[in-house]
Amino acid sequence: MLENEKKLIILAKKGNEDAFVNLFQSHYSFLYKYLLKLTLNEETSSDLAQETMLKCYEKLNSFNGDSKFSTWLIAIASRLYIDQLRKQKRETNWINQTKVALSRQLIWKAKSQGIEWSDTFTDFNNLEAEFRIPILLRHYYGYTYEEIGELLQIRPGTVKSRVHNGIKKLRKEWTFHDE
C-alpha cells in the first residue's frame, strides 16, 4: 500500500471527509472499470460503484490493512453485485409464481362460472408485456394501431410489429403443443 494511501485511510478513519473524498477519487475509476467488466452495463456499474463507496465509508473502520485498499473495495463490490443478482432472481421467481397463481385463480373462477377457458389464454399470459398489451388492445378492445401507439407512446409501426410478432410467437407455441 502506498504511504500516501495509508495516511488517507488513517485520516478518513478519524472522520476526515477530505481524506475519504481523496480515497474515493483515486479508486473510483479502477472500481468502475472492474464493475463494468463484471456487469457489462454502465448504469449498473455506476450504481454499484457508488453503493460500494458508501459501504466502504460505513465500514472503513473494519479495514485493517492486511490487503490493498483496492482489493478490499473489489471484495465489497463483488458481494454487492452477487446480492443484486440474488435479489433479481428472487423477484423474477416471485413474479413467475404470482403469474401462475393468478392464472390458476382465473381458470378456477372461469370454470366455476361456466365460462370456457382455453389454453390459448394461458399461452397469451406467458407472452412478454410488450407483445401482450398491444395484442389485447388491438384484438380484444378494438383499438387502432394509431390509438395504441398514442396510449403506449410508441409509433404505430412499432405497434403493428409487436402485434404481428406476438401472434407469431403464440402460433409457434400452439404448433408446438399440437405436435
Rank of each mutant, 00 (worst) to 15 (best):
E130A: 11
Y34R: 01
L40S: 14
V163K: 12
S78H: 10
G65K: 07
N126H: 15
S112R: 11
S67Q: 04
Y57M: 13
L127N: 02
N22G: 08
A49L: 10
E116M: 00
L23W: 01
V100C: 06
F20D: 11
H27E: 14
F24H: 02
I9S: 00
Q50L: 07
T92Y: 02
G15V: 06
I135V: 05
I107N: 00
E42C: 12
K89C: 11
T52A: 01
L2V: 14
L136T: 15
I135C: 00
L85S: 03
M53S: 03
K160Q: 05
N93L: 11
K13F: 14
A19R: 03
F176Y: 10
S67P: 09
L136M: 08
G65Y: 13
Y141K: 06
I95D: 04
T71K: 05
R138E: 08
I76G: 04
A129K: 15
S118L: 07
E147M: 11
E179G: 09
C56V: 01
L136A: 13
H177L: 15
E91L: 06
K89V: 13
N4G: 05
I76C: 01
T71E: 09
A49P: 01
L36A: 05
N126E: 12
I82K: 00
Q105P: 01
W117Y: 08
G157A: 05
T44L: 07
L38W: 04
S70Q: 13
I115Q: 00
D18S: 14
D66G: 03
Q105M: 08
P134S: 12
E179A: 08
D119F: 08
E58A: 12
E51C: 12
E3N: 09
N16A: 06
D83W: 14
F131D: 02
K55Y: 05
K55M: 07
R79M: 00
E3I: 06
K99T: 01
V21R: 15
L136W: 03
P156M: 02
F30C: 01
S78V: 12
L85F: 02
S45G: 06
L106T: 05
R90K: 11
G15S: 10
L151F: 14
N125H: 12
L35Y: 01
L23K: 13
E17D: 10
